[in-house]
């Protein structure tokens, strides 16, 4: 299905957030995920299904003042 991932359109195989992280090769540590403007708690990655057109944001910490 096609989702909006970090502002870009992307075709993904994953059906849920946990699978999406695996598909992208991301570590779960110290990232956070928002699905359609709602934070997805880490404990609910597996239960959070993805739907066509979802807006997903995946963020982490970088240097800043």
């Amino acid at each position: 299905m096609k989702i909006q991932l970090n502002g870009e359109s992307k075709e993904v195989q994953a059906a849920d957030v946990l699978a999406l992280i695996a598909e992208l090769g991301l570590e779960q540590r110290l990232i956070a995920i928002e699905r359609n403007l709602e934070v997805v708690p880490k404990s609910q990655y597996a239960e959070t299904a993805l739907a066509e057109g979802d807006h997903i944001e995946i963020v982490h910490m970088i240097g800043g003042g």
Partner: peptide, 9 residues
């Protein structure tokens, strides 16, 4: 302090 930004996929 740290900033919060998109992961570069």
């Amino acid at each position: 302090t740290v900033a919060v930004r998109r992961v570069n996929i």
